[in-house]
């Protein structure tokens, strides 16, 4: 069989947007190997979430619901995902925290090779090759997986969200395969959600990121700019390490990878590991008082200026330009 299985991400009965990037991969991969793709929707409220996956072109929507799947734990999910995956050639999810946690465990269970965070799927005859960034995005490797089942995760910003193509997918209920033995020794305690009215970093059209130079005024300076642009707020690792911004805002090799239409780097020098997280942005604007900062080498528009004076002026300018 040469079919592709997408492992969807579900939160509170909703299909997370991350899923649509994996679907785009699946459409391409299935066409290359001459098969179809199906979507496995597993988790709390999976039945409801599966309805949102209708029209994406999947042959089947496989739904797994069970009371013990309420709070995600890899030890509870992996056995079922692996059991379903046995009928497929390629298993794909998005390299979100969920995908990065679950998919290697699924691969190990299947004795399958795993390639993470891929940015491109290449057709080499009828076989698949994958392009993935390495060395903080300073090199790309082309790899292939030799096992009968291949497991991959895709970088969300490199695969545009799949658009509905119409048509109905058959819905099948799949039985929960039960937890692994390891699940007896892990307990979900809590999830402390960071509440924000802003769009998610990895999905925002505009991202406004700040560096350590903002100090305690991180929010005071950036919030008005993010508000006027409807942007998500990001931060450099230095700003997070110094405690000026929460760590889940970190953009970079070791944080979130973003590729918005418009990216503002404010008071960010442009360390390699930060560039790795935002180089894929369509338009990059840098504001920094150091004219030699490496960020200017990747910025489409650079402004050498004091950010504390410039950003409020920019907010007014954008307001005026938007009418």
């Amino acid at each position: 069989m040469a079919d592709v299985l997408v492992v969807a991400e579900v939160a509170e009965g909703k299909l997370k947007k991350t899923t649509h990037s994996a679907v785009t991969f699946a459409q391409k991969a299935a066409a290359t190997i001459g098969g179809s793709f199906s979507i496995l929707v597993i988790g709390d409220g999976a039945g409801k979430a599966a309805a949102e996956a209708q029209g994406l072109g999947a042959a089947k929507l496989l739904v797994v619901e069970d009371a013990s799947l309420k709070n995600y734990l890899a030890e509870r999910y992996a056995p079922t995902v692996a059991a379903v995956a046995k009928g497929y050639a390629v298993v794909v999810g998005t390299a979100s925290a969920y995908g990065k946690d679950l998919l290697p465990r699924v691969a190990a269970r299947l004795g399958a090779g795993y390639a993470s965070d891929i940015t491109e799927v290449l057709a080499d005859g009828g076989t698949l090759k994958y392009k993935r960034p390495m060395f903080a995005g300073n090199a790309f490797g082309i790899c292939s997986i030799s096992t009968p089942i291949q497991v991959v995760s895709v970088r969300q910003s490199a695969f545009a969200a799949a658009e509905p193509t119409g048509g109905q997918s058959a819905v099948e209920t799949v039985a929960y395969a039960g937890p692994s033995k390891a699940a007896e020794r892990v307990e979900f305690v809590s999830f402390d959600q960071v509440k924000s009215a802003r769009p998610e970093l990895t999905e925002a059209r505009v991202v406004v990121s700040g560096g350590r130079a903002l100090k305690e005024k991180f929010n005071q300076v950036l919030d008005p700019l993010a508000d006027v642009l409807g942007a998500a707020v990001g931060a450099s690792r230095a700003a997070c390490d110094a405690g000026y911004a929460p760590s889940d805002l970190q953009v970079g090799q070791t944080g979130k990878i973003v590729a918005p239409q418009l990216y503002f780097a404010i008071g960010i020098s442009g360390a390699i590991q930060h560039l790795a997280g935002m180089k894929g942005s369509k338009v990059i604007v840098a504001i920094n008082k150091d004219a030699d900062a490496p960020i200017f080498q990747v910025a489409d528009y650079g402004l050498v200026a004091d950010l504390f004076a410039t950003v409020p002026e920019l907010v007014k300018g954008i307001q005026a330009a938007k009418g």
Partner: peptide
């Protein structure tokens, strides 16, 4: 299980411009 067939440098970003003011 995973093997590499080649490597490439990422495409260079086109150099941008410096603007004079907001």
């Amino acid at each position: 299980k995973v093997s590499y067939h080649g490597f490439a440098a990422p495409p260079a970003r086109k150099a941008g411009i410096k603007v004079k003011d907001v």
